[in-house]
Every structure is written in C-alpha cells, then in structure tokens.
C-alpha cells in the first residue's frame, strides 16, 4: 500500500508541473505588469529597467515559468505585491484562517448529510422526507452568495440581539477573544454547511434507499439484528463508499478557500486573497494559491481512494 501511495504521489508531479506552467503563462499573457510604469517613461526609465530585470520581463512568457519553478523548489514562492508580504507567509496565515472555517463546516455538513440521508431514506415519502427534500432542492438551487446574504441580513443585521452574531469579520485573528471569533465565524460556516449539506444529503438519500432495499440488508434483518444495528452497521458502511468521493472533493474545495462566502463575510482567508491576486494581477500570489489548491486536491483525492479501499474490500491496492 505504501508503494501505491508513493506511486500515486509521484504520478501527479508531471500534472502539477504542467498545470502550474499553464497558469503562469496564462496570467503573464493576459496582464502587463509594466503598464503603469510605462506611462511615466522616460522619466522613470531606471525603475522600469529594474523591474524588467528582477522579473525577467524581457524574456519570452514561455520561459518565464522556469524561473518561478527554480525558486519554488527552494521554497521561495516570491513576494505578493498586493499584500506586501512573502507569498509563503500569506498562504500560511490565510490558509489557517480558511481551515478554521472549512474544518467545522465540513464536519458539520458530513455529519448532517449522514443523519439526514438515513432519516429520509428510512421514512421515504413521509412528510418530513418531503420537507427535507424541499429544503435540499432549495439549498441546491440558491446561489451561495444569496444564502450568505440572507443569513447576514437576518441574523447579523435585523436580529443581532438574539444571538450576537456578526455579519462581518472585523477583529483580528490573533487578538480577538474566542467569543468574538465564534460570533463572526458562525454565519459563514452556516452558509457553507447549508450549501454542501444540500447536495450531500440528496446523494446520500438516493444511495441509502437503494441499500436498505438490498438483499444483504434483508439478510441482516433475517439474522435477528435490531433495526439500528442493521442501519448503522450493515447499511451505513456501504452507503459511505460513494459518499467518500463527494466528501473529498467538497473538503478540498473548502480548504482551498471559498471565494464567495469568505468575501461576503470579509473573512481573511484564501478566497478573498485569490480575488485580489487575480484582479491586480499579482502573479506570485496567483501561483502560490494555485499550487496550494492543487496540492490539497491531490492529497484529498488520495485520501478518498485510500478510504475507498478501506471501506470496500473489493478494492485492493497493489
């Protein structure tokens, strides 16, 4: 299994390099970092030449990525012009902020998805099932920004006195109290939960329905197992197999920064940083966030595959 993991990781390296190369070329081709300097030529010829030299702007956009690769391998991801900090620091700090929101959002939505899909599947076509189905379609249909805005207006603006929740993040991550943090993290986490749980519980319910009418669940009942043991042991383990892939994708997406939710709630995570990086554009920051997202995606795909193999003995790695 270790060799499987190593092989999987190694096999993603060419893909990673290819993707990073294309992103670098793409951003260079669509932006001109010298645009503003060029306006003041020839007065600022000296500065202009320095920038050209530092960023090797006289070279073709096709070879420029190699310089970035050279530095990246040595752990130097450059400096973010927009945020005035080394990209490595930005990724670390903002990545942690994003994780602070992503981890609870993921855990809550995964747990809710399991509970709701078991509940809906066992009480198929009951009133509660219809209500849950209705809400999940609503969750699927409403865009994230809308869900976020509704929560923000309702809890944060109209009725903040009920819960003390804040519509925006205002404090500082380091100096704020835990209570303050909770007040400002609840609404964005809730937004993410609503959006992910809708899709996950739909999928989970369909899955669970198929499984609870399967032959091996009937066998489990014929053995005299209690209903809860039939569901939570025999059915659930099978129902988790396809969900694992969905969870891995969702969690990876959350950890790479949820652009819309973080931006709406002014959460200082990777999402807003990516928006800043793209609009400037801030090439080093774009590259930094992209590679972080790519690595996260690769790692979570691998975790999903390993979990898959652990849950389903018909899949074996060798």
């Amino acid at each position: 299994m270790l060799t499987y993991v190593i092989r999987r990781v190694l096999s993603t390296i060419p893909l990673l390099i290819g993707a990073m190369y294309l992103v670098h070329v793409g951003v260079s081709a669509t932006s001109d970092p010298l645009a503003s300097l060029r306006l003041c030529l020839p007065r600022c010829q000296e500065g202009y030449d320095r920038v050209v030299e530092i960023y090797e702007l006289d070279r073709s956009i096709w070879v420029r990525p190699f310089a970035w690769f050279g530095d990246a391998i040595r752990g130097d991801f450059g400096k973010s012009e927009a945020l005035g900090e080394p990209v490595g620091n930005v990724l670390l700090e903002r990545g942690l902020n994003t994780a602070m929101m992503a981890i609870p959002a993921f855990l809550i939505s995964a747990l809710l998805a399991v509970l709701l899909s078991v509940y809906s599947a066992r009480r198929q076509y009951s009133k509660t099932d219809y209500v849950l189905t209705g809400f999940s379609f609503l969750g699927l249909a409403l865009p994230t920004f809308f869900v976020g805005l509704v929560l923000q207006v309702f809890w944060g603006v109209w009725f903040p006195q009920w819960t003390g929740m804040k519509p925006f993040y205002t404090g500082s991550m380091r100096t704020g109290s835990v209570l303050e943090l909770l007040q400002s993290i609840t609404l964005p986490v809730l937004t993410l939960v609503i959006v992910s749980v809708a899709a996950e519980s739909r999928f989970g319910r369909a899955n669970m329905l198929e499984i609870i009418s399967s032959d091996y669940v009937r066998t489990a009942r014929a053995k005299g197992l209690s209903e809860s043991r039939v569901i939570w042991k025999h059915a659930l383990r099978n129902a988790m197999i396809p969900l694992v892939t969905l969870w891995a994708l969702d969690f990876a997406a959350l950890l790479s920064g949820s652009v819309i939710t973080e931006t709406i709630f002014s959460w200082p995570g990777l999402g807003p940083a990516f928006v800043i990086a793209l609009t400037k554009p801030d090439l080093d920051l774009v590259m930094g966030i992209t590679i972080l997202a790519a690595v996260i995606a690769i790692v979570f795909n691998l975790i999903a595959d390993l979990l898959y193999g652990w849950l389903d003995p018909r899949i074996r790695f060798d």
Binding site: T219, L311, R314
Partner: peptide
C-alpha cells in the same frame, strides 16, 4: 436467526460485501 433461519435465492447479493 435463532429459532428460524432463512436463506434466499441469490447468494451473490445476500451477503454484505464489506
């Protein structure tokens, strides 16, 4: 499963695969 045991038609699907 204790006093009455039961077996079914399709043994390919009657056992839990996991």
């Amino acid at each position: 499963g204790a006093r009455i045991g039961m077996i079914f038609q399709d043994p390919m699907t009657a056992l839990n695969p996991v």
